[in-house]
Design a binder for these strands. Structure first.
Length: 465
RNA sequence: GGCGGCAUAGCCAAGUUGGUAAGGCAGAGGCCUGCAAAGCCUUCAUCCCCCGGUUCGAGUCCGGGUGCCGCCUCCA
């Protein structure tokens, strides 16, 4: 079954055919590092993580680039307001960003280029655009002349004349130095508000516009034409549209073959906002005691093009699903009888799992395939058909689907404290003596201490509640 | 005003080229258990926002309508 992706350029699912298989060039718009990522940002990064893991699972060799935007209006404003230097601010939050990725089990991209490390390359592209007649200057700033790129709007399907009409009603022309309100800045001339944030270049003293960094860094590391470019749907216009204009005007080549955009995350059916009190960072959720993989589950388990609604009820459901997976793994590890007895269940599960993801990353179908597998194997363990050999194969399957999803791993090893084990032993003695009252007291006591006790045919076991 | 998306059980959510509604959570009953827990079984949408149409047959295509949301300005 071929891989198919919904390409925003054509608004259809297309068979994925890389420009130079088995190599795949993937560029994903990264964070603006001036504060902590919120769970909406993280949803997009998790979708991109699923994409990269599945491409690797299918044997592609990935070159995945994610930029770090470390110079931009909001960053400069924050620096001005707090007095912190740009390097210090962006360094702190870049580190926090990587910590969040680690917490959620997000694989690292091959390259994380920072905008401020690529000023020279950006200047080169802007010069090239200037030579080709795609720019004009106003008050020291350099703008992209949209009228020089008639194909503009191919991604968002916005029409140039309509944009113009509507912009005129909303934009105070006094604030625009551009010839046309639709034009966007490639290079911004220095302003006193920029403080210490500027570069002296052939284009003058100033800083790059926001859009140019992605054109520059994607083409530097992936070539002038590459396979996949991702981002949140809100970046489709104007950011990605502008990237296409800059890049294709500069090179004369098609910039990107497949554009994939993820839908937004809502919280309690509302757009996240601090004023509504429904704005969460990963750290907020961890502080409430939620398992990071359960958070991963909640954020990744809705198809990426579907608007998703985050709720704590949903997070609890994800936590339960994860508990079920981990209990199943533990059960497999404890199978003692000899033999295999798994049949073709692992192969059929993996087939259904892979087919689902091949179809534009249908994660719901993929998860369903694994749950079908879990139910069938549990049944076979109950009836003592599946033995140790089969259990090992089942665990191997879980490990494989885990490399793609990050949802089916073992979870942290829990060391059972000696005093807990002592209570378990004492309870066993009570049970043997038919002192069930005492046995139940101890079980309640354990639960109070955060440990769930389960009696199995092979004896009692405890796990963290 | 322009462009676009979404509406499936209490909640989340999947449904290829139309063929007779995945999966998870929660709930109910049962098996198992000293009792539980875990696991398993059964149950949980005669119906997929509404109204028309095409078809032997539509959640799935066409037309109309209602509701919610997004983008057009920084935004994952």
């Amino acid at each position: 079954m071929p891989i198919r992706f919904f390409n925003t350029l054509t608004r259809t699912k297309e068979v994925f055919e890389p420009i130079a298989a088995p190599h795949v060039g993937l560029y994903t718009c990264g964070p603006t590092v001036y504060n902590f990522a919120h769970i909406g940002n993280l949803r997009t990064f998790l979708f991109e993580d699923l994409l990269r893991r599945h491409l690797k699972y299918r044997g592609y060799q990935l070159q995945h680039v994610m930029n770090l935007t470390d110079v931009e209006d909001k960053i400069i404003r924050t620096c001005r307001e707090t007095g912190e230097s740009l390097k210090s601010l962006t360094g702190r939050f870049a580190q926090a960003f990587f910590e969040d990725l680690d917490t959620l089990g997000v694989e690292r991209a091959e390259i994380y280029p920072a905008a401020t490390d690529h000023i020279t390359e950006m200047v080169d592209i802007i010069k090239k655009l200037r030579e080709n007649g795609h720019t004009y200057e106003a008050n020291g700033s350099i703008y992209f002349k949209l009228s020089s790129f008639p194909q503009y709007g191919q991604l968002s399907k916005f029409k140039l004349d309509e944009l113009k009409t509507n912009a005129s009603g909303r934009v105070d022309s006094d604030e625009y130095e551009t010839e046309d309100a639709r034009d966007f800045a490639l290079w911004k001339a220095y302003d006193d508000d920029d403080g210490a944030v500027f570069w002296e270049t052939e284009l003058g003293k100033g800083r790059p516009g926001w859009h140019i960094e992605c054109s520059c860094m994607s083409m530097k590391y992936l070539g002038e034409s590459f396979d996949i470019h991702c981002g949140g749907i809100d970046n489709m216009f104007p950011h990605h549209e502008n990237e296409i204009a800059q890049s294709e005007a500069a090179t004369g080549k098609r910039f990107v073959k497949y554009w994939l955009h993820s839908a937004h995350l809502f919280v309690d059916n509302r757009k996240m906002s601090k004023s509504l009190g429904n704005f969460y960072t990963l750290r907020d959720l961890l502080a409430k005691g939620h398992d990071p993989i359960a958070i991963r589950w909640a954020l990744i388990s809705t198809h990426y093009r579907q608007p998703s609604n985050f709720t704590f009820e949903g997070l609890e459901a994800a936590t339960e699903s994860l508990r079920r997976v981990r209990d199943f793994r533990r059960r497999l590890e404890e199978v003692r009888i000899a033999g295999d007895g798994l049949g073709e269940l692992d192969a059929s599960c993996e087939k259904a799992f892979g087919d689902a993801l091949d179809d534009d990353l249908n994660i719901s179908g993929a998860i369903a395939a694994v749950f079908d597998f879990i139910r069938e194997v549990n049944k076979l363990i109950d009836s003592e058909v599946t033995g140790k050999g089969g259990a090992e194969r089942a665990l191997a399957l879980l490990d494989r689907v885990n490399t793609v999803t990050g949802l089916f791993g073992a979870g942290a090893k829990e060391e059972t404290p000696a005093e807990i084990l002592a209570l378990v032993t004492e309870r066993q003695q009570a049970r043997r003596a038919k002192d069930f009252k005492r046995a139940d007291e101890i079980r309640d006591q354990l639960l109070g201490a955060g440990w769930v006790l389960e009696d199995t045919p092979d004896g009692p076991r405890v796990k963290k509640a």
